[in-house]
């Protein structure tokens, strides 16, 4: 590699000097042109892989798309959306979002604060242990959790509730327990990553602030309320926002538990509905309309959340 580089240098140096008059070479090496060559792949990929599909998704949502024949049908796809399956999917995705936001923001804050304190030893080991589930692919997580929550009374989940005196549950066939598996799976996988975010935030807090708070006689809760929380706020907002977006995008957790078809749609999510209608039923126009609704939903909820935290901040200070 080093040899190759050295050879290249030997070749290019005289080349540039000898052919100073070479306008083409000079053009491609001018500092005005070079950055555009560097970013060219990005511009192309943005145009093809983001801009075009975004516009196309909106156009498709107003079309009926059959093989070899495409027809504009106005708002018919949108009118069709608001049926029972959609409300089911909307409810499931929203409940999942709320539960994962709640769990994946509060518990990581507590764990990160303990890991940041002097109270816990072997910090690196604990941090790594929490982080490892994030490396697991969703399908492997699905294999594990399906077997942990298996129907048999000998499986772990039923053993645990049996210990408390409950009857075995068919976890995959009840709405509440199906949601529980999905939420536990997501919490297990993403806990460690969120702990990392909060740890990074906590390490930015100057230790002197705690000391001066102590001198002012602040107790543990007051220190948390007036020193830790204000510093963590941007990270809390960030983690909450990505959890809201991630929550509404839920699909894979459901897919690996029920292979796309849950009994009575107990595991149907918005993206699941999009997949079912757009890909499996090949009704791309309808699927695209669901996608547009999902996009709007995510935008509106995120913006409301961000406005709320922003307004809260102004009132607080």
């Amino acid at each position: 590699m080093a040899e190759l580089n050295a050879n290249n240098r030997k070749n290019t140096l005289p080349l540039v000097k000898e052919k100073k008059g070479n306008k083409v070479l000079k053009f491609f090496n001018s500092q005005k042109v070079v950055p555009y060559i560097f970013v060219f792949p990005f511009i192309v990929s943005f145009a093809i892989l983001t801009l075009y599909p975004t516009i196309q998704a909106i156009i498709m949502s107003f079309q009926r798309i059959l093989p070899g024949q495409v027809e504009f049908i106005g708002f018919q796809n949108y009118e069709r959306i608001f049926n029972q399956a959609f409300y089911k999917a909307l409810t499931n995705s929203t409940v999942y979002m709320l539960l994962t936001v709640l769990i994946l923001v509060t518990i990581p804050i507590i764990l990160a604060m303990l890991l940041d304190s002097k109270l816990v030893r072997f910090k690196t080991f604990f941090r790594s242990a929490l982080f490892i589930p994030a490396l697991t692919s969703i399908v492997v997580a699905g294999v594990i959790f399906r077997l942990v929550f298996a129907e048999s009374e000998n499986a772990i989940a039923n053993q645990i509730i049996g210990f408390f005196g409950f009857e075995p549950v068919s976890w995959q066939f009840n709405a509440w327990s199906g949601m529980l598996i999905m939420v536990i799976m997501a919490s297990w996988r993403w806990m460690g990553v969120n702990v990392l975010y909060f740890l990074a935030g906590l390490q930015n807090i100057p230790k002197e602030l705690y000391e001066s708070a102590e001198m002012d006689g602040a107790n543990l809760f007051q220190k948390f309320r007036h020193v830790t929380l204000p510093f963590l706020k941007p990270i809390i907002i960030f983690v909450t926002t990505i959890s809201i977006i991630g929550g509404f995008r839920v699909f894979e957790e459901s897919y690996v538990i029920w292979e796309g078809n849950s009994p009575g749609n107990i595991g149907l999510t918005l993206v699941g509905l999009l997949y079912q209608q757009g890909i499996q039923q090949n009704d791309m126009g309808f699927g695209a309309a669901i996608g547009v609704v999902l996009l709007l939903l995510i935008f509106v909820v995120s913006i409301i959340y961000l406005l709320m935290t922003g307004a809260f901040k102004r009132g607080d200070e």
């Binding site: 075009y52 599909p53 975004t54 998704a57 977006i245 509404f248 999009l274 890909i279 791309m284 995510i298």
Partner: peptide, 14 residues
């Protein structure tokens, strides 16, 4: 910011 799932169908068609 744009969720991939929204772009999925047009990309699939492409």
């Amino acid at each position: 910011m744009i969720p991939f799932e929204v772009l999925m169908l047009p990309l699939y068609q492409l």
